[in-house]
């Protein structure tokens, strides 16, 4: 992809590149997928807002040529809620990490999903706190290692998809950096969806998670994603034993008929005018 690629129109590459991300990190791949989805949907850049919290993933807004807001740890969704309510025509994309979006920001996540507010939440899930140097997160699997789990993690991990569905999000999907084509299609669908759309993207942190868990190279980690993910249609035909330790990828829920919060609020305003 040369500098003439249209993707450059969406990047602040002259001002901000190179990125802070380590070689082999999955976040850049996800950024590319988000931009391609926005391009393919033909959104005006002035109408797109990207909001993030704190962490490696949260540096993404600085690199993209939208209205961009880099907020506090875990709170991106709450900021996005205010923006969306105040200016409903804007397209809100929130990028969070797993610690950012599920630990410190877990409450905002479930409540935004419950309201079914029209925000696309890309949860970049690398199972580790990268920015602070490799501590375990709510999605670190049991027995995996981190600097704050030096003897192996004893906590169970969250299933982000089940959490999103239970909280009331109307679009819930999982994909992985390895499945780049699928990821692009899912993000595009998530953006088009009116309501809370959650995309759990399994990503890789070779520098911290990989090194601590015997996957030293990005390639090893991507191959791990390949081996440990099963498409939702394929998974339907498999037994629970066969799916042990696997992550199902695909669209789990896509309900366009659930009442969306900002539209409901507009209905309230209209009803009071009469």
């Amino acid at each position: 992809m040369g500098p003439k690629s249209p993707i450059y129109d969406y990047l602040r590459y002259k001002k901000k590149f190179p990125t802070v991300w380590c070689p082999g990190c999955g976040i850049g791949t996800i950024m590319g997928a988000i931009i391609r989805a926005v391009m393919s949907l033909g959104y005006d850049k002035n109408d797109v807002v990207m909001v993030s919290g704190i962490g490696c993933s949260s540096r993404m807004p600085a690199y993209v040529d939208f209205n961009t807001l880099h907020t506090t740890h875990g709170r991106a969704i709450a900021f996005a809620t205010g923006i969306k309510l105040a200016k409903p025509h804007l397209k809100l994309i929130v990028v969070t990490g797993d610690g950012d979006g599920l630990a410190i920001g877990g409450n905002h996540f479930i409540h935004a999903a419950r309201r079914n507010i029209d925000i696309t939440h890309i949860l970049i899930n690398n199972s580790i706190y990268g920015m602070t140097g490799g501590q375990y997160s709510p999605t670190t699997p049991r027995r995996a290692f981190a600097y704050t789990a030096p003897y192996g993690n004893i906590e169970p991990d969250f299933d982000v998809v089940e959490l999103g569905i239970a909280a009331g999000a109307s679009f819930v999907a999982r994909t992985a950096v390895y499945h780049i084509i699928q990821m692009g299609k899912i993000i595009e669908k998530a953006l088009k969806h009116k309501g809370y759309s959650l995309v759990d993207v399994i990503s890789q942190c070779p520098v911290l998670y990989g090194r601590l868990n015997k996957m030293r190279s990005p390639v090893e980690m991507l191959l791990w994603q390949k081996e440990h993910t099963v498409d939702i249609k394929v998974a339907a035909k498999k037994s629970p034993e066969e799916l042990e330790g696997k992550y199902i990828v695909g669209i789990f829920k896509d309900d366009p008929d659930m009442p969306e919060y900002v539209s409901e609020y507009q209905k309230l305003i209209d009803s009071l005018k009469e």
Binding site: L69, A78, T81, A86
Partner: peptide, 18 residues
């Protein structure tokens, strides 16, 4: 909102949106 941090986040977001 779901708590006071969320409240002020939404308020700041709304202000940024004008």
């Amino acid at each position: 909102m779901e708590d006071e941090m969320g409240s002020l986040a939404a308020v700041i977001g709304a202000s940024i949106a004008g």
